[in-house]
Design a protein around this nucleic acid. Sequence first.
DNA 1: CTGAAAGCGCTAACAT
DNA 2: ATGTTAGCGCTTTCAG
Lengths: 337, 337
Amino acid sequence: MATIKDIAKLAGVSVTTVSRALNGYSDVNTKTKQRIEEIAKEIEYSPNALARSLVMNKTKTIGLLVSGLSREGAKDNIVFDVLTGINEFCGAEEYDLVLFNTTTSKQKEKTYAQLCRERRVEGVIVQGIKNDDPYLQEIFDSNIPCVLIDVPVESETAGYVTTDNVDGIMKTIRHLAKLGHENIAMVNGHDQAFVSKERFKGFELGMLEAGLTVRNEWVCDGEYSERKAQEEALKLLNTYPEITAFVCASDLMALGVVRAAKELGRKVPDQLSVTGYDDITLASYVTPALTTVAQDCFRMGYAAADLLLSILRQTSGDRVRLIENELKIRNTTKEIK
Amino acid sequence: MATIKDIAKLAGVSVTTVSRALNGYSDVNTKTKQRIEEIAKEIEYSPNALARSLVMNKTKTIGLLVSGLSREGAKDNIVFDVLTGINEFCGAEEYDLVLFNTTTSKQKEKTYAQLCRERRVEGVIVQGIKNDDPYLQEIFDSNIPCVLIDVPVESETAGYVTTDNVDGIMKTIRHLAKLGHENIAMVNGHDQAFVSKERFKGFELGMLEAGLTVRNEWVCDGEYSERKAQEEALKLLNTYPEITAFVCASDLMALGVVRAAKELGRKVPDQLSVTGYDDITLASYVTPALTTVAQDCFRMGYAAADLLLSILRQTSGDRVRLIENELKIRNTTKEIK
DNA sequence: CTGAAAGCGCTAACAT
DNA sequence: ATGTTAGCGCTTTCAG
């Protein structure tokens, strides 16, 4: 593979000159510069990013730590959307992305910091990390620039992007309350996600605002799984048939609840209202289409990359990006009779 | 950031010894080795993969060239599934993935080979490339190890993974024919995808096998888009109401056709049968659930990574991996009355 | 068992 | 405008 040395030899100049010519420095004679460029093209030279990074101490690379990069992640296209957003922004900024492998069994052999430092990524975007993951503390301790999705961590070098999850659920409750619902249950996700806490807070606050009471036995953990949500909803509906609406912390779980309702012969939305969260692709395609809180995951990814680069460049002091969400009213919610 | 030099100094040995100790060479005194490892841990040393790669001429990195990494790609989870499969295999083999940015406007500034050589990736997996993309020729010309998804390219250093697209559609036709359908139309995808040709061939062969005639005016191009497929199907159904079944080259297009049918008040599957291809997540969630040819995209990705590494290691001579597909009969196909 | 020295391909002072 | 030199952090002969 051709190097600048080869070019230098062919052009009869020093490697320094070649380096400068190729990197667009002004202090190179126009003719030599031209000659060098021609030769470079001719011998199909391509710069060795490794060598360059080594000496410049900059890799133009950001790392991606993704927990949901598994077979199941395909159903909710969240991970994918975020990834796309990141990719979009990084493309424009000429940063490349490296996907770290954390799916392996030996993920715990290497510490987070090691993973990043080995590859000399300039920063990291972390997605889908659970709040009992040991990496989380490391992220906070290390000084590697980092942006988390939906995990509130703030430091000199770390920030996060999220949506207003409290408000998202509150909007939902308001909508439900306006439709006359009073007996509202919630299917939350597991505790290892920060958003679960927020969404539950939104539930409490929303109920309070509507003058309704939260019954703790009507709040269950669907583990962000369709099947589990279905089971839990089934139990709840059997025990408390007076429930008229379910607020779910994810669309997949809402789908599970709709299944449960169907199983019991309760029509959605006529006899039961159900709401989701996320607005995954399925939400609008399914029948009845899901009323849900839409998160723009693409924008979240885009903003995450933006924030990370601004941390890298120390251009701004803020460490948080809040993305708007929106209640999409579709066909799983209806006025109570 | 700590280097082996630091360790060497602290341990009172040469860098050579440190290097050997850390890389598990046998010819190092056990005690020195232990000391070195302790120090390494203490000062939080992590090896610089850049430097190592530079000297070893191996990066343990494979590149990913993905065309469908855009906002729309989220609907069909194909790209994501393939990615997941690749990631799974590479994780086990300790290879990292770098995502190349081809979405940028300046994608044509850099040639394919440049892109790969700059980052010194050991090989590349290419997905979603269209057959009029100039990169394709470059892939063939260059000697960079490469595996394509669904694009038949074979050379010393290149191979591909795909499914039997001809057979996939033939299975569909067989199914439809058995249900009594004779007036079968096809919504194919655009010409820039290799699979389109295959799927059309499957259509011809299938019809032939069933003793049915292909009417060219009943074959249209849905461009793999839901909306376009809907439009085309609408036209066709208006002009030729005798059509009783649509074979589509993708699930998204099948969804479009179902929409068109609904628009015209034709019930699916009672008054019109529709089949898809891919078995994306939507296919089974939508009502009526789509009869479709399922491709295991996860396995395709997994196989692609497997094939690439075997090319890199020159362990086997085959350059093709064929993944099974399966006709999933659901609720958009029905016996004709 | 250990060290000295060379070199991977490149950039960046510091001359000239 | 160009060249000399040093060095990024690591591995690898080759000598001891």
